[in-house]
Amino acid sequence: MSTTRDDESEAGVGPSSRPTSGSPAGELQIVSSEDPPPSQINDALVLGLSIVAAVSGIVFGVAITLDAPMLLYGSALAIGLFALGYAVRRYFTDRFPLVEAVEPRLRFTDPDIEDDDAAPTSIPAIQPVPRRPFLQWALLGSAGAFLLGLLAPISTLGPRPRAGQIRQTAWREGTRVVNTEGRPIRPDDIAAGGVAYVWPEGAVGNEKSSVVLLSLGRPALEPTILDWVVEDRLVAYSKVCTHAGCPVALYRQQDEALFCPCHQSTFDTVRGAVPTFGPAARALPQLPLGVDRDGYLVALGDFEELVGPAYG
């Protein structure tokens, strides 16, 4: 069945369209238009392909997240793309007339014709055949599910946080305390009132494990854990601020306070490094500190409190 749909497309031009200059540049002259035959198979095909595409997209996403064989997610990706493409194609051939049209050429070197950049009329000249709208939703839903699956590679951008990983540092029972050059430290190396920035042996530069080792000028008070104070004066605290993670790098001698240069959180080293000022809410965790048989400072275990800022 072949009909000319010129009149219909003309009728579609509403009063809201902009006035055009009358030049044919923006207009579409339909030569022939053939409505697609009604077909039950087509609906089933589009629906089926939509489901295949959606499922493929989800399979792709799940498989890549679970690190399944590439054969699986690669094929799922390919199948999904082909199915979605074919579904779109069948949808359009079923819902829109097969149209052939003529578009006038611009003549470039003819001095008489007027320059024209008039936009084509905003109302599409080709109207869809009125049929059930539900396939449209099936197609859109399928495309949505497929795209959702394609987002899965985001999950490969970084490891999954393992339980306790954020809490864990490089300190273990018996790990020696070393300076930045990696040399182990004896209690005598830290003079009275001295401060040293120290690391676990074998993990110098491991940011989360950085520690401030201090020799207190007066006896440590609660809530300092006194068992972890060596020779009644040496105490070790995490150097990572519990507010935003900056190094608590400044030591203020007059009140034996550790001070964070980023947001001015201040910690009282005599009283278990509790925050006395600023935005930090928790004390700097105290490192269980002891001395090994050879007389070197060692950790008695990892920190018991969370090192660094809180996490959601």
Binding site: G158, P161, I166, G312
Partner: peptide, 19 residues
């Protein structure tokens, strides 16, 4: 990291692991 619930995962995705 401080974003409730999703913080650690989002931080790992952006930074590629622990900073």
């Amino acid at each position: 990291l401080a974003v409730p619930l999703v913080g650690p995962q989002v931080a790992y995705w952006v930074f590629g692991g622990e900073f």
